[in-house]
Nucleic acid binder design. Structure first.
Length: 430
RNA sequence: GUGGGUAUAGCUCAAUUGGUUAGAGCACUGGUUUGUGGAACCAGUGGUUACGGGUUCAAGUCCCGUUAUCCACCCCA
């Protein structure tokens, strides 16, 4: 039986055409170049891992519902990676004694989660992961903050359109344990409610808390907590490690002159392995991108799942989908249509070898060159170069060959000059 | 996993509400112009109306199912 193949890609994935690729490269190159500027080193891990790696960290539920997993031909349980952190922790744990701390590592890679696609979320996506291992103090956080803000500056993001929100899991524990005195089971549910606070709205939020059987006093305490500022934290700094850390962190951030960061009590970051600072960044200039641009936190205990001693770690992941939406919202993506610099038309098949020789010389000088392969009508060749936004056209026919020169045409202005090949190369490179 | 919207040319949309051969703009290809692009004009390619079934004399239009897509919930490592 023969079925016609569909041209649409698999659910929740997308094809990237050359023009989209320029956008991707723009984002990824910015991530990479700024990371290198900060001394971060690139690494990579396999796309597939044993399923237990994800279950050990996050519990059964996620593994069974949103993980792409299968049994391989040898009977091993395998999963396509839904995130980087466990693989990274494994790499570090494996060579812990020979790696020189601190480690500042980054990676850009694809991830897969079996989810229902919607705005800002697909089944296949790319994330930047940036992590620092071996720095127990808040300087790790500050290093990451500076990186994130530098990337946003590199994107020329308007300052009033983004905000890095910071909280601390120890502070949340203080709320759950010392103020509300919740059972472990309720901590999770109340935590999720707090995470959803801005989305739910005050009334729905209160209603939900009451459904969770919080009494009026506890509801009042949660609402009070959500209004806390750094000033309020000072009052409990001696009782809550989280409060003390946040105060120190923001004091140092102020000394560094960091902007666009704010203490936000409702930031939760799931309920898994975070141990201190947690962060999320949001678009605050529009309502088009409600999802977090990036998220991360401190996870000092993660190496213990490999039977290793704890190792301080702070890192975050930055997704490509919401970032692209954000950049489009503020028109921050440059409109270059091609990386090709020169187009070489072909008047006659007899000139093919000669033109290819010129193309070779241009390429050896590092000039991205496209040469016409078939001798079609000249007007259409120019039209092609124009449509592809190639900035220069180097016209070479019998006249030019006899004169040992080339006609260099600037496609933006329409000007053209008879110059030597060497002069043309200089003009193109300038 | 749950709920809702949508599905007509590559894209954006029409089709007098069930009636003859499914149209337009943009895009694409060619021509006017065989060594000069962007504009204009002319022509052309492109459709099993997502797929499958049903109702009807008649279905792009109504009904059912499937798939895809968008949005929300759940979740978000």
């Amino acid at each position: 039986m023969e079925t016609k193949l569909q041209t649409t890609p698999y659910k929740g994935t997308t094809d990237t055409y050359p023009q989209d690729m320029l956008v991707r490269n723009f984002m990824f190159n910015t991530w990479t170049s700024v990371a290198k500027r900060f001394g971060f080193e690139e690494y990579d891990t396999p796309l597939i891992e044993e399923t237990t790696l994800y279950i050990a960290k996050s519990g059964d539920e996620i593994a069974s519902t949103q993980l792409y997993n299968f049994t391989d031909k040898g009977g091993r349980e395998i999963a396509i990676r839904p995130e980087m952190t466990p693989s990274l922790a494994r790499m570090i744990a494996a060579k812990k004694n020979e790696l020189t701390l601190p480690l500042k590592w980054f990676n850009i890679g694809k991830y897969y989660r079996y989810e229902k696609p919607q705005k800002g979320r697909r089944r296949e996506f790319v994330q930047l992961n940036v992590d620092i291992f071996g720095v127990p103090t808040l300087e790790a956080e500050l290093e990451i903050f500076q990186y994130i803000l530098a990337v946003m500056e590199e994107f020329k993001a308007p300052k009033e359109t983004y905000e890095l929100r910071v909280n601390n899991r120890y502070l949340l524990n203080y709320l759950f344990e010392d103020i509300l005195k919740l059972s472990d089971e309720k901590k999770g549910k109340v935590g999720r409610a707090i995470d959803n606070y801005t989305k739910l709205g005050r009334e729905a939020f209160i209603e939900y808390l009451k459904e969770l059987e919080l009494n009026d006093k506890q509801v009042e305490q949660v609402l009070e907590f959500l209004k806390w500022t750094l000033e309020d934290l000072k009052k409990i700094a001696d009782k809550s490690e989280g409060a003390a850390q946040l105060l120190e962190l923001f004091a140092k951030a102020k000394e560094l002159g960091l902007t666009n960061i704010r203490f936000e009590p409702s930031i939760m970051r799931g309920l898994l392995y975070y141990t201190g600072t947690v962060i999320e960044m949001f678009d605050i200039g529009s309502k088009d991108n409600p999802r977090a641009l990036l998220g991360g936190g401190r996870y000092d205990d993660l190496l213990t799942i490999f039977g290793e001693e704890k190792l301080p770690a702070f890192g975050f992941a930055w997704g490509d989908i919401v970032l692209e939406d954000y950049l489009k919202t503020y028109n921050l993506i440059p409109t270059t249509k091609t990386d090709t610099k020169v187009f070489l038309p072909l008047f006659d098949t007899k000139l093919y070898t000669y033109i290819q020789g010129i193309a070779k010389q241009l390429r050896e000088k590092g000039i991205n060159t496209e040469a016409q392969m078939t001798a079609i009508k000249f007007g259409n060749q120019l039209k092609y170069a124009s449509k592809k936004n190639i900035p220069w056209v180097m016209i070479i026919g019998d006249d030019e060959i006899n004169a040992k020169k080339v006609q260099l045409k600037n496609m933006a202005t329409g000007e053209q000059n008879l110059v030597t090949l060497e002069e043309a190369m200089k003009i193109i490179n300038s």
